[in-house]
């Protein structure tokens, strides 16, 4: 490699290295703010090492699993209330509106709303989060004991039983 090429190679590598370290530092500094949502544990016990808790009245997103058996629907309106958890304490979410097709007990969801008390959120938007596993229904039943129901049917059939 001739000296001029070598010099160019070094220049390009040094610039590249500087950009990488600059961006890494920026992302590291912004780390907490890039998260899309708080987990229920973070809402109640505070976030990460800083331990900063969200304030009551703050607009935020919460993401967690819908606790089995916690979904309570109002028979006359679209109001629904359910609990979310990850590994620690539970947070109650109340919502009025149409839930996404994938919403069911045990499903991961992300809700946007206002924190009313330290464990109660009034949501204005509920989104379903699905995991990275894909398999045919027969296999899911075999592996996980999940009964196959189409998302739309699940909503229709299970509603009266709540």
């Amino acid at each position: 490699m001739n000296p001029r090429r070598k010099q160019r190679l070094i220049t390009v590598s040094v610039i590249g290295g500087m950009v990488i370290s600059a961006v890494s530092l920026m992302l590291f500094a912004l780390n907490d703010n890039i998260d899309l949502f708080y987990t229920p544990t973070e809402i109640i016990q505070g976030k990460g090492e800083t331990g900063v808790k969200p304030m009551i009245g703050q607009r935020l997103r919460i993401g967690g699993l819908v606790v089995e058996g916690s979904v309570e629907r109002n028979q006359d309106t679209l109001a629904v209330e359910f609990e979310l958890m990850d590994t620690g304490p539970k947070v109650t979410v109340s919502y009025t509106g149409i839930l996404p097709d994938l919403f069911r007990e045990g499903q991961g969801i992300v809700a946007t709303g206002v924190l009313q008390a330290n464990n109660l959120i009034v949501a204005e938007e509920v989104l379903a989060k699905h995991d990275e596993e894909y398999m045919p229904p027969e296999l899911a039943e075999q592996l996980k004991g999940i009964q196959h129901v189409k998302p739309s049917e699940a909503g229709l059939n299970s509603a009266p039983s709540y």
Binding site: L36, G63, E132, E133, Y134
Partner: peptide
């Protein structure tokens, strides 16, 4: 980070989590 988007299904080390 926490995202709404799912995690990696095939571009990860180990068994792909798809049938």
């Amino acid at each position: 980070w926490n995202t709404l988007h799912q995690g990696a299904t095939i571009t990860k080390f180990g068994q792909p989590s798809i049938a």
